[in-house]
Design a protein around this nucleic acid. Sequence first.
DNA 1: ATCAGCAAGCGATACGTATAACCATCGGCG
DNA 2: CGCCGATGGTTATACGTATCGCTTGCTGAT
Lengths: 360, 360
Amino acid sequence: MSDGAPGRRRRPPTQIDLARRAGVSQATVSQVINETPDRPARLSPETRARVLDAVRELGYRVNPAARSLKGARNRLLGLFTFEAVFPTDQRDFYFPFLLGVEEEVAEQGYDLVLFSSAGASGPRRIYVDGVNRLKLTDGAVLLGRHVRRTELSELVKEDFPFVFIGRREVPGARVSYVAPDYVSATRDLVRRLVELGHRRILFVKAYQGAEPTRDRERGYRRGLKDSGLGVEAAIVHRLPSSGVVTAPDLGAWVRDGVTAIVADPSEDDSVAASIEAAAAETGLSVPDDLSVALLGDPSRTETTRDWTRFDLPRPELGRQAVRLLIQLLEADEGEARQVLLDCTQIPGGTVAEPGRGRRR
Amino acid sequence: MSDGAPGRRRRPPTQIDLARRAGVSQATVSQVINETPDRPARLSPETRARVLDAVRELGYRVNPAARSLKGARNRLLGLFTFEAVFPTDQRDFYFPFLLGVEEEVAEQGYDLVLFSSAGASGPRRIYVDGVNRLKLTDGAVLLGRHVRRTELSELVKEDFPFVFIGRREVPGARVSYVAPDYVSATRDLVRRLVELGHRRILFVKAYQGAEPTRDRERGYRRGLKDSGLGVEAAIVHRLPSSGVVTAPDLGAWVRDGVTAIVADPSEDDSVAASIEAAAAETGLSVPDDLSVALLGDPSRTETTRDWTRFDLPRPELGRQAVRLLIQLLEADEGEARQVLLDCTQIPGGTVAEPGRGRRR
DNA sequence: ATCAGCAAGCGATACGTATAACCATCGGCG
DNA sequence: CGCCGATGGTTATACGTATCGCTTGCTGAT
């Protein structure tokens, strides 16, 4: 190939190239590019046209790195998940969030950066080699079950704008988040159980309880209290690290008079599955002998039963997170803000009035 | 709050701040930061230590914008679809591609930019105001049924690296793509029909036939030829713009001796649905009186029948597209390249030997 | 005594953009 | 006639980093 031939990879054109071509200064080019209705450029129509022609002819595209180096915005939002999104076993969980995020991002005229580079295998990290990759974007939506707290506080410390989907706390700082209202949803579920006649209701909580688990426990206690049972009626069982309920467990609870169980849903639905298995082994029928409700929705769609539970408004959580993020960006010196969204109660078929089994 | 207090928005520390603190120059700081085993810095251990101490004390993070301003590459790949990805009726179609793309992008250590900003409603465009928005990335994967040809040739002209998923042609230029091998898949399907005893096989093709339709037609003719029927046995019906097959159509074909139909699948499955409806109306049973096969897979999952068809390897198409793109980037002076991937034949239940209905 | 050679670190500059501050031209007006 | 304000630009500079080439001080050989 002869040198200087077309086809060689050209350096992308810069504003200086445009300026030369249009016979103006680089500053003028920048003004044309950055013109907005609210901050119009004081330029003649002809100049503007010449610059825009040059833009078209040279195929100019603003360099986001340079722009954000200046501290300006580049209309890029990030989406970071602490677990890989797309492995098939996770996608049913993450996809609805992604849906909402992408929709809202599109509507607001932003583009979306999916941060997938860090840790294709193993846990993902925001900081690689001490560099915050998110900084490429104006701000980011964060998501995930296994959050690295240290990274979160790093983000807060360096004042990077972000919104978490799900309630997260960072000691000594206020974090913006959009989260399902687990407290109310759990409270309502417990109330319903009491109305049905249940008096001994067991709360099965996850081994490592994060904010969502704590919120559910609060809702559980509040539900008991609101129903007149009083907080002392609370019975709480913390799962072992296996995340499994055994037949002996179940037997002991029933002998103790428990007629209903509300459970933290685990990511792999092992809680629901093991309760069902244990019930079968013990010869108990759900819901006739024992009512069971999940405090959330199973992530796997191939779940066997039609569990009594509540659904998280996942796409809406995504959408609201983006809205909140954009608000933060536009407020510039914005305070952290929190938004709670209602869950939808799903009646399901695993809850009934107590004692039906005996009457049968 | 006293001024200078923590909580005010601090400017993150820069290399200059480190330099002042360590009593060295900014250049030296940069050397320490960027030291790698293969390119060691020529610095005394004490200096290195002083700089690293400063890094720790000030909580320094490299500014990625500034860094990528120096080198052209961003390690960002783009994904552009000519239709909106996430409206619920489209997502089942696009999602598998996205899956493969994201997986491979992650594996290669890149991040992914979803271009969603343009045209939340209406057709999407790469060039807005004559500006190529993709330029922000090192290269892009393109995808979509309703491609804007002019935009494609623009991209080729300005030498932007991209790979299309699906075969696309641009006059006077070679485009890189990764596509399903429609020719072979259709040929094999037709061969199978002939082996079953069919002699008059109708090809129903889409109203506006793009490359995929043309490839299927080639495969159709090749299948006839390979089976010894000869190309003159071809019978082709072009759908009207409604994309629907009517009962009179079907009646005429059957009277003409047609025993099998192979059809371009439409995006909304209207072809399959209308053939089924027309058959019911005419009192014909599929497959007893008439065999029907789809030359691809229905995008809607809620399709009624278990159609005889072939599946596109969608996630694999996504993965390969990313690999090819990265090859192009790394070759730098890369030639356009094309990759074809095999489809999987799905036996289904809408094909049988001809004449079964009469014998019944 | 002179100078080559090397180690250690620094100065200068480039990357592409945004913007504040400044300047030239010109019509209108007292 | 001289000054003013508006119009339509330009010049200069900053953002934070990476890197090339230069200086400086020193060791050891001639």
